[in-house]
Write a protein that binds this DNA or RNA. Sequence first.
DNA 1: GCGCAGGTAGTAGAGATGTACTATGCGCCG
DNA 2: CGGCGCATAGTACATCTCTACTACCTGCGC
Lengths: 213, 213
Amino acid sequence: MNRPDKRVTRILIVDDHPVIQAGLVSMLATHPEVSVMGSASSGEEALARMEEDMPDIVLLDLRMPGMTGIDVLHAMRQRKASARAIILTSFETDENIYRAIQVGAQGYLLKDTSQREMLQAIATVHAGRKYIPAQIAARLAERMMRSSLTARELEILNMLSKGLTNKQTGKALKISENTVRNHVNSILEKLEVADRTEAVTVAIQQGIIQVAG
Amino acid sequence: MNRPDKRVTRILIVDDHPVIQAGLVSMLATHPEVSVMGSASSGEEALARMEEDMPDIVLLDLRMPGMTGIDVLHAMRQRKASARAIILTSFETDENIYRAIQVGAQGYLLKDTSQREMLQAIATVHAGRKYIPAQIAARLAERMMRSSLTARELEILNMLSKGLTNKQTGKALKISENTVRNHVNSILEKLEVADRTEAVTVAIQQGIIQVAG
DNA sequence: GCGCAGGTAGTAGAGATGTACTATGCGCCG
DNA sequence: CGGCGCATAGTACATCTCTACTACCTGCGC
């Protein structure tokens, strides 16, 4: 609980890739104003570490096996964790950015960020402000313009992407084909696309549905 | 041209992400049997560096602005470069793996690879053998099973993904709607899918078409 | 020169999709 | 309680998609 030096920003790295962990440690280690407390390779480990190490800032990867970064943010919020979170990820779908900010991320960086910018983001967030690069902010705005798909619509969108017809989808969900059609039309309107095929492209592009590798 | 120590494997890192560069340097620096000659942030820089530094192994990212890793491999082959290449990437679409191996990559690693495995891959490739993890090899086999789409089919698949109808596609390509239909049917057969919507999902999933972020 | 792959074009018909409405029941929130 | 969003269901019609064929031309390799 006692901090050795109040001016030093204490960092916890959460990323399942060893090379990223090593890279961040190496990029941050030489700077006296930050101190890397440690690294976690999973969300579960991160939450445990957070209670022990009391970091000021958590650098958080979104895509991890098990808990995702979003899950970790949720858990942090519930536990009223004092640490602030900066998302650090290779991917930047509109949906991911939107969700991360919604559950309380204070910063959002891409993995191609320079050391200089990374340090600046850490300083900014530690000072209590948000750090969202313009490019990311633009995507966030884009996403906030559009209304969200409902749970049912998401479910149906996923079935579209697997090539099910309206009839097959209706049977699978035990609703009529007509109802499926209504939902499909809502999806097309919300995504602002011409047909189900484009809907799938846009949904994947924006991270609304995932394509299991 | 004179190598200080023949037992040392000389490495060139090619990746546009500073954090990955730093991570790889840090993971490899402490090991006496490898020596990192330097890092390049782009394919163009990598090719220049290769002539100067004469590395034994190039650790090559696939996704980079400008030249992709595949482009670099092509250029290396044309110039009959002596260096062997190991692909090091976050992504692993069937198509990327297939293309990389086809143009002469000797290894294929994911960025979640441990330090131990990375060193082993480097040693194996330096000894003249290939290093393909079982998981990657399985995907490669999967890809080799299927016949490739023709240039025309690819073009039409891209238009499908944008929501164009057969008629619109025909007009855009100045061919008849009937011909488009024939191509679409070939696509469905080759991808083994039920309809154009599933075709787009599968094509994106396998890296056959890209979704511009 | 012949076969083969790829691109082109056509026909006919069954079925799926998209559009444009109306309408009901449920649960939530102010 | 009233309004609203959501899920449900329906009808009718125009259009698009998919299937199953046949057919011709070109370029390439054996």
